[in-house]
């Protein structure tokens, strides 16, 4: 139901916004996405995880605890080697790491502008007053943490296994859908909480 809500709201709001392109990414609580691209010694990774997985809520941070939780999560997400543990033999070091909390419409940087949208439990009531708004479906209020990493591995051939301490750090995350691209092709894996390792042999 949670996933249908934004779609329904977009449908309600549509007559007023007939000329815009409307799009929403799918959003499933408990399931994040991790993309890994490897070329030579460079490993590029991007993580998309629902706010619910990382901090346990997806409304805009109001209390200082909420904000602290988000800050702590961003700080944790910015240390990729502690979340995705690579074998020591691969000699991986972090070249660049960034993490941020983004709301669903990342294209228009209006996050934080909608303070009046306080109670997201009765968001249907807000529909009408939002028609004049240039934005739409803000009520959905799904948030995602996005992180991007670049690693440099002295011996990428030794990347035989990745251990996902990620699930230990974020108690609400159930699953990561991992896609890996190397020179030899692309492959998809599902890494779940109860078996948090990824076997990369055969990808090189």
């Amino acid at each position: 139901m949670k996933r249908l809500l934004p779609v329904a709201l977009v449908a309600i709001a549509s007559p007023a916004l007939a000329e815009e392109t409307r799009e929403l990414d799918s959003h499933e609580h408990g399931v994040g996405e991790l993309n890994i691209a490897i070329e030579g010694g460079t490993v590029a990774m991007e993580l998309h995880a629902p706010g619910a997985d990382i901090v346990g809520f997806e409304y805009e941070a109001e209390s200082s605890e909420d904000r602290a939780a988000i800050d702590a999560a961003v700080a944790t997400l910015a240390r990729p080697l502690e979340l995705f543990v690579m074998p020591a033999a691969a000699e991986c070091t972090v070249v660049q790491a960034s993490a941020a909390l983004e709301s669903e419409e990342e294209h228009d940087d209006h996050v934080g502008e909608h303070d009046h949208d306080e109670d997201h439990a009765d968001d249907h009531d807000h529909d009408k007053e939002h028609d004049h708004d240039e934005e739409h479906a803000r009520e959905a209020n799904h948030t995602e943490f996005h992180a991007e990493y670049t690693l440099n591995c002295g011996n990428a051939g030794a990347l035989s296994k990745v251990t996902f301490a990620y699930f230990g750090a974020f108690g609400n995350a159930r699953e990561l859908e991992v896609q890996i691209v190397t020179a030899s092709g692309a492959q998809a894996f599902e890494v779940e909480r109860n078996e948090p390792t990824l076997d990369l042999r055969g990808m090189f």
Binding site: E23, A37, I38, E39, T42, H107, T182, A186
Partner: peptide, 16 residues
Amino acid sequence: SPLQTFSLQRAINEYP
């Protein structure tokens, strides 16, 4: 480069 695969994929999927 394989490193660009995902960003290109996203760019295409979000092609307005």
